[in-house]
Design a protein around this nucleic acid. Structure first.
Lengths: 111, 111
DNA sequence: TAGTTCTGGAACTAGTTGGTTCTATAAAGC
DNA sequence: GCTTTATAGAACCAACTAGTTCCAGAACTA
């Protein structure tokens, strides 16, 4: 089984704009570290570390083709976040006053 | 205007299980710091700091009623994450082989 | 007024993060 | 075989984080 990824790691990995940009780039297809580094004013090593963080968080897998290690986006952790959001989504999808009701539900309870 | 919140801050705030638990608790209604601290083996001060982080990230607003400062969940940053996910959601909602096509689209380009 | 309750500020600590540089290794190209 | 290219390991640094303890202030309670 693919070692369980925590929401902690996923959220932490996504909390960096460089890493989110790398993920977005990977929507266009697999890429090597050098290719991923190209748009940034950072060393290739720094980008390599960012990819490592994404890999740790399960958001990226790598396959080496010759010297190039191709990175590829993995969707499962994103789906996990999506499912986590489900618990809150109903609050903004309902009518606004119903949302207010939910939020205040306990506040008026006699305890 | 309510000072613009960055995805960086939102993701970072959500990368901590204590803070996610606090948010979940706030689904049941507003609560004071002391109330929020009750389920945790942490000092009230530590929880107060966590609430501060959530507040910084726009996930919580506070209103003081007497000494009690009531925290309330705010949904906008969560909706922002939901919208950010939109860019990826189509990949796991489509048929799997179409997703594969998208991912490999560039890999086979003659360049 | 005095005491209690609720919270935030300040100062500190240990551990983590995001970046650097320099070095090593593995595969391709000549 | 030597050189180049692509990447990761190691060591380092400055900044930030999550926690603590101690103290101060604001507002209820008696």
């Amino acid at each position: 089984m693919a070692t369980q990824i925590s929401l902690d790691d996923t959220f932490a990995a996504l909390a960096d704009p460089t890493r989110r940009a790398i993920l977005a780039r990977l929507l266009d297809g697999e890429a090597s570290v050098a290719e991923l580094a190209q748009p940034f004013a950072l060393t290739v090593r720094a980008i390599s570390k960012h990819v490592g963080v994404l890999e740790q968080a399960g958001l990226v897998t790598r396959s080496r083709s010759a010297q190039k290690h191709l990175s590829r986006i993995e969707l499962k952790p994103l789906r996990d976040i999506d499912r986590w959001l489900d618990g809150y989504r109903k609050l903004w999808e309902g009518r606004f006053d119903r949302m207010e009701d939910l939020l205040r539900r306990d506040a008026d309870k006699p305890e």
